[in-house]
């Protein structure tokens, strides 16, 4: 008989050591997770704090207009004397580039998304989908470069707008990156519809177009809306394309062919030369916060639409 002097259940130091090691590893991962979360919260708090500092130096109403010689002036000239901080021309500039870009991109992006999801054969889809995703990842500075060097001349020769660089040119440039985004998200929204619904429509005798226009598209409308909203959020936050193609003149206009200046381009152009902790410095943080709030609102809205769609499909 073999005598084993070791105990049957082994509770050595090694097990104890293992448990401590496990604990340390867990704490290590937790620290990383919490650090990431704190970093993110820090960004929000820091932006808000810096932005609100501006009100110690500037009257809030000055962000709308300033009275010079008993006349309301809506201008953004932080370096002039007295400094003018009206954000009205910047807001107009941002919307005058982002809204047309969204309209153009919605049409082409949704059409392309419908094609990818409903019409293209599997082979074509597998080929095109990665290509379109790659388009969405083109560096924006390259798009800005293309608009400035090639498209600007083209537009000048054909339409001949009053200024060579204008809001229209910028919105065309924005479309180059927003179309792939909307197309890709629309495709995903349409693909998320169960195939049973398509089959039901076909079995009732509907043609392909009838199925798409009367059944699939209306069902996925919230998802498509979400993709358009996200596209708009991307367009309004985009910097390099508008910085290079919009002409950067801070004027109040509704003419799409005039030069405009957006919020993002203003931050990009002025942050490098501003003196720290001046009213100008804080005001740039303030318009940054506005931009942040707008994009945040868009993301929340898109989330809402997507949830609506998801909820609908729990019914099936």
């Amino acid at each position: 008989m073999i005598m084993n002097d070791k105990p049957l259940i082994h509770t050595s130091n090694k097990a104890e050591l293992n448990r401590i090691k496990e604990k340390f590893i867990e704490i290590f991962f937790r620290l990383n997770g919490l650090f990431a979360a704190i970093l993110i919260l820090l960004i929000f708090f820091f932006l808000i704090r810096e932005a609100l500092n501006v009100f110690m130096l500037i009257n809030p109403f000055e962000f709308i207009s300033i009275n010079l010689k008993s006349e309301a002036v809506y201008e953004w000239y932080p370096t002039s004397d007295p400094a003018r901080y009206s954000i009205v021309p910047l807001l107009i500039g941002s919307f005058l580039t982002a809204v047309p870009a969204t309209i153009i991109s919605t049409f082409f992006g949704v059409v392309l998304g419908v094609y990818l999801s409903e019409i293209a054969s599997t082979g074509v889809r597998e080929f095109l989908k990665p290509i379109i995703e790659v388009f969405a990842g083109i560096p924006t500075v390259v798009v800005g470069f293309f608009m400035l060097v090639v498209a600007a001349t083209l537009i000048q020769d054909t339409i001949n707008p009053p200024s060579r660089l204008n809001a229209f040119l910028a919105s065309l440039g924005l479309s180059i990156i927003v179309i792939p985004i909307i197309a890709s998200l629309t495709d995903e929204a349409l693909k998320s519809i169960p195939n049973d619904i398509r089959m039901a429509a076909y079995s009732l005798g509907a043609s392909k177009w009838q199925t798409i226009s009367k059944v699939i598209f209306p069902t996925a409308l919230s998802g498509v809306s979400a993709s358009v909203i996200l596209g708009f959020g991307r367009a309004i936050g985009e910097t390099m394309i508008v910085l290079m193609a919009s002409g950067n003149a801070a004027i109040i206009t509704v003419d799409i062919f005039s030069s405009v200046r957006t919020i993002s381009a203003t931050i990009a152009a002025e942050m490098g030369e501003v003196s720290v902790n001046s009213a100008h410095y804080f005001s740039l943080f303030f318009i940054g916060l506005i931009l942040f709030a707008v994009t945040l609102l868009m993301n929340l809205l898109a989330e809402l639409f997507l949830n609506k769609m998801k909820k609908r499909f729990h019914l099936y």
């Binding site: 960004i43 932006l47 942050m271």
Partner: peptide
């Protein structure tokens, strides 16, 4: 979803 330029503001300020 935060625009990259806003992240840049944070980078400079923070």
């Amino acid at each position: 979803g935060v625009p990259s330029i806003v992240i840049g503001l944070f980078g400079l300020g923070f």
